[in-house]
């Protein structure tokens, strides 16, 4: 099933497209790139459960669909519960030989950050705790985009959204981003990773491993949103790469609780480079940027300590 040899170079990424073109995602949409690459590691024996959000509405406008696999959507907050139901049904029907029991059918759950970090957190926790054999992918565009750019608990500190506007008293989101990886880790699941569309080989390899795992796995994918982040369409990959190069986003893989950094950054760039090309951070002053730099420094220090090496180096200009 799936892709059974490791993805080491670009050429290893399957050419087959299981995610059909013709959808209505924005030009430069990071989530679209995420979906296309995610679909590449699936084969026909994959059933997809998706939560309400940008990807769902842009890929399934009746009577058309972008999905070449069986696909189901019920609502916003229950993607993990839907995936649990699909998985349990497959188990029961295979055991009763209604479905060929030699066939391994994998369930992949896909939801946005709002559908995962916020409203879907309970159902995600339930699914992980019950140990369903489901690969869960959260495409993180750091806000509720489908409803028009409202803050979520995945929105980073200082970012503009329509519900964290730039006023005289409040300027952007006052709280930092929620750490979903630690939450997933607390469930003791076998495979957790962060991935980023600017590093497709790394990303697809993580998808592949998460898919192969027998049990729950979670991949958290950094997926820039052009209108939501107020970035140019051609800057999607640039912003995604800068997130890694500045240490704002660290490429992690946690197998059975053992963490490692898959894309090491010996010399970090200053966070200013990342913030300055995004309209959502336009209002930040130099001192705001220094505050954010300190937050990133602390995060990097924490990660390095956790993985037991200096995987992410100091800021070198």
């Amino acid at each position: 099933m799936g892709v059974n040899k490791p993805i080491k170079v670009l050429w290893d990424i399957p050419r087959e497209e299981r995610f059909a073109p013709g959808h209505s995602m924005c030009q430069g949409c990071g989530a679209a790139i995420t979906m296309r690459h995610l679909a590449k590691i699936m084969d026909k024996n994959t059933i997809i459960a998706m939560g309400t959000g940008c990807v769902e509405v842009t890929t399934t406008l009746f009577p058309r669909t972008s999905w070449r696999n069986p696909w189901i959507h019920l609502a916003f907050e229950n993607t993990a519960a839907v995936a649990s139901g699909v998985e349990a049904a497959l188990k029961a029907l295979s055991r009763k030989k209604i479905i060929d029991d030699s066939r391994r059918i994998k369930v992949v759950a896909i939801a946005g950050d709002g559908g995962t970090f916020d409203i879907g957190l309970q159902s995600l926790s339930g699914m992980l705790e019950r140990r369903h054999n489901v690969m869960y992918v959260v495409y993180d565009n750091e806000a509720y985009m489908n409803t028009g750019i409202q803050r979520s608990s995945a929105t980073p500190y200082g970012a503009w959204t329509t519900t964290t506007p730039i006023g005289t008293k409040l300027r952007g989101k006052p709280q930092p981003k929620k750490d979903i990886i630690t939450i997933a880790l607390a469930h003791g699941i076998p495979y957790i990773a962060t991935a980023n569309i600017a590093y497709p080989v790394d990303m697809v390899e993580k998808f592949r491993k998460a898919y192969e795992v027998d049990g729950p796995s979670l991949v958290h994918v950094y997926s820039p949103c052009t209108p939501g982040w107020r970035i140019r369409n051609e800057h999607t990959i640039e912003v995604a790469r800068l997130a890694v190069q500045t240490g704002v986003w660290v490429q992690l893989e946690i197998i059975e609780g053992e963490p490692r950094v898959t894309i090491k950054v010996p010399r970090r760039k200053h966070v200013r480079h990342y913030l300055r090309i995004q309209g959502r951070f336009r209002h930040l002053t130099d001192s705001d940027i220094e505050t954010i730099q300190k937050m990133v420094d602390e995060y990097v220090e924490k990660i390095n300590k956790w993985v037991g090496e200096e995987a992410i180096g100091p800021v070198v200009e």
């Binding site: 059933i47 519960a81 699909v86």
Partner: peptide
């Protein structure tokens, strides 16, 4: 949610 999904599998 889970029973609707299970039913959708048959």
């Amino acid at each position: 949610s889970a029973v609707v999904a299970a039913s959708a599998v048959g």
